[in-house]
Nucleic acid binder design. Structure first.
Lengths: 142, 142
DNA sequence: TGTAAATGTTCTAGTAGCTAGAGGTTCAAG
DNA sequence: CTTGAACCTCTAGCTACTAGAACATTTACA
């Protein structure tokens, strides 16, 4: 039986985060000692590892909830899990595209920096002048 | 003189967002009509465009605050603006590297999906088994 | 001039995914 | 039996907005 701190160490998760997952129903309520402290078993280690791994892959908690659900019901179709993963991949590729554009523009800004005073600073100029900017108006996101 | 809605349209910013920027001191308090409605001028359009453009480039609001500060004081060194941009570029490249790794793993997951039931779903299996995962424990970030 | 629709106002609370701190309790080692 | 680390709950904070309630103003048209 593991304390919450040891579970955290095993899975690379902060204690607060584990309690948070419990609060939002992603982790089940664990058993408690007489004094009221949480104690965890192997199943909890597995589940939390799953969650953390999925988080590292960028899955939002809601997607992880679905995936855990699928995982708990081994008879259901694999297609659902597959489509969640595909959705995630799309998100990742979208973000990459955006970052690529940003990098280009940032590099241009930095490359053209004259090193004088801000009056003729290219960085500020580029930011001031929207016209050369190719990115569109709506979403920003990371 | 523009209403807040028209300023929003001009700059691709939601009305609420403009008020939020005012609240946190990124936009100055504008003049008001007798009835108390905000009215904006050209300087406001410029400033807000600057902010939005910087946001699209991924600058956090605090960095934008610094940049605006520099912009307001044209005598100060361009180096500061440059270093903010460089810092930002580093962030962008870091995020890109991480996304690249994620994409690889996601693709692998999806590629191996058997299409059967979840019991032998590769997506879930990969998530369940952390051992093949190369990503490290600490940061997740987008 | 009257009125209705569109747009404006403030205020509060919610989003994701945690993180940090206060103030107190329990556990394990020595 | 004491000490100190680790636990407990609860609340609030973070970024950058977004949404909604309840009400006021502005504008266009009849």
């Amino acid at each position: 039986m593991l304390t919450i701190g040891n579970l955290g160490k095993k899975t690379g998760t902060k204690v607060q985060t584990i309690r948070y997952y419990e609060q939002i129903g992603l982790m089940p309520e664990p058993g408690r000692t007489e004094g009221g402290q949480r104690r965890y078993g192997d199943a909890d280690v597995d589940r939390l590892s799953f969650i953390r791994h999925a988080r590292q892959l960028g899955f939002p908690l809601e997607a992880i909830r679905e995936l855990l659900d699928l995982s708990d019901n081994p008879d259901r179709s694999c297609h659902e899990a597959d489509s969640i993963a595909r959705r995630q991949l799309k998100q990742v590729e979208l973000r990459m595209d955006r970052l690529k554009a940003l990098r280009t523009e940032l590099k241009r800004m930095i490359h053209e920096c004259s090193g004088g005073n801000t009056a003729d600073c290219k960085v500020l100029e580029v930011l001031r002048d929207h016209s050369e900017c190719l990115t569109d108006h709506d979403e920003i996101g990371a």
